[in-house]
């Protein structure tokens, strides 16, 4: 019995359509990289890698350096990661191991809801609620207690600061790290946990001795995903960081990040070199974003739940 010609045509058509769509996805990804690099060409040839370290950004004089933005990006994201990772792991442990059934699904959904709040809304809330609170309470207190550390310098009057941006980013990456970590903790076989419990271990000892070590690489990957998100967040950061220039030791000074600067220049570029400089900043973001993502995947691949179980 032969295949009907209409069926053969249908199969070819469907496969062709699907393959085209798949190729389109790859093409878009490649084209994004191309466009961004291409757009930055003029700035790249003029400033070279010095763009990464020079801290002057003066569109009116056609002088561009993204050093302070790069610094602000790294500082705010690292701060977010340092606060968010332990909190997110704690949340994931609660959800995976401690929470009663009903609570688990409700709290789990709520934490994921936090990820769904648009960044522009979080940023707006940051301007009107978080910034004043940080300025009036958190920063003075930290300055008073730890002022001898340069990081905690005198608070600024506006409340816009790298510190506030770091807190906003913390809120944004917690749900990402928490939900990935929770899924990881769920993969730790019950038999391993039972084995530890049967040795007279407390819940925390089971977590520290069995659950965290067996999922460590996966959790690290989750943290890197969070880092990628924090590095690339533009809108919410723009709203609260204060668009400062220069590199300051104090977290309480205003600052700027690459993504935030790019978003800020939407009103229009003053010259083609200005446009190219914006693209250059985006190109750095692209490279950082792609490499954190690839790195997260690479570590993540080293985590294989089946390795945890004896054969």
């Amino acid at each position: 019995m032969g295949v009907r010609p209409s069926d053969r045509a249908g199969d070819t058509l469907l496969r062709g359509l699907c393959a085209t769509a798949a190729v389109a996805v790859i093409a878009v990804m490649v084209d994004i990289a191309y466009q961004v690099l291409h757009g930055s060409h003029q700035a790249l040839s003029k400033f070279g890698l010095g763009f990464l370290v020079h801290t002057t950004w003066r569109p009116n004089f056609d002088v561009f350096g993204a050093g302070s933005f790069l610094y602000g990006t790294i500082v705010s994201s690292l701060m977010a990661l340092l606060i968010a990772t332990p909190l997110a792991i704690a949340i994931a442990l609660y959800l995976s191991l401690m929470a009663p059934r009903g609570v688990r699904s409700i709290v789990g959904s709520l934490v994921e809801m936090l990820a769904a709040v648009p960044s522009v809304v979080i940023g707006f809330w940051g301007i009107l609620v978080l910034s004043p609170f940080v300025r009036d309470h958190l920063e003075p207190w930290l300055h008073g207690a730890f002022g001898f550390i340069p990081l905690f310098g005198p608070p600024q009057t506006t409340g816009s600061s790298t510190f506030t941006a770091g807190l906003i980013l913390t809120i944004m990456v917690i749900p990402i790290i928490a939900s990935v970590s929770r899924d990881l903790f769920d993969t730790v076989p019950q038999e391993l946990q039972d084995g530890a419990a049967a040795l007279g271990a407390t819940r925390w000892e089971i977590v520290r001795g069995v659950i965290l070590p067996s999922t460590a690489s996966g959790v690290a990957a989750a943290a890197f995903l969070g880092l990628g998100r924090a590095l690339g967040e533009a809108i919410a950061v723009t709203q609260v960081i204060g668009a400062g220039t220069g590199i300051h030791a104090s977290l309480f000074a205003t600052g700027d990040t690459l993504a935030s600067r790019v978003a800020n220049e939407f009103a229009g570029a003053t010259s083609t070199l200005h446009t190219a400089a914006i693209f250059y900043a985006a190109a750095i973001l692209l490279v950082i974003g792609l490499s954190t993502n690839l790195f997260a995947q690479w570590i993540g691949r080293r985590f294989d739940p089946s390795r945890l179980v004896a054969r």
């Binding site: 391993l192 039972d194 084995g195 049967a198 040795l199 007279g200 070590p213 004896a310």
Partner: peptide, 17 residues
């Protein structure tokens, strides 16, 4: 404390990784 005094070995070997 109960489990510290009363140990257990399971059906499937479950050594820690």
């Amino acid at each position: 404390e109960v489990r510290r005094r009363i140990g257990m070995v399971f059906q499937k070997p479950n050594p820690f990784p």
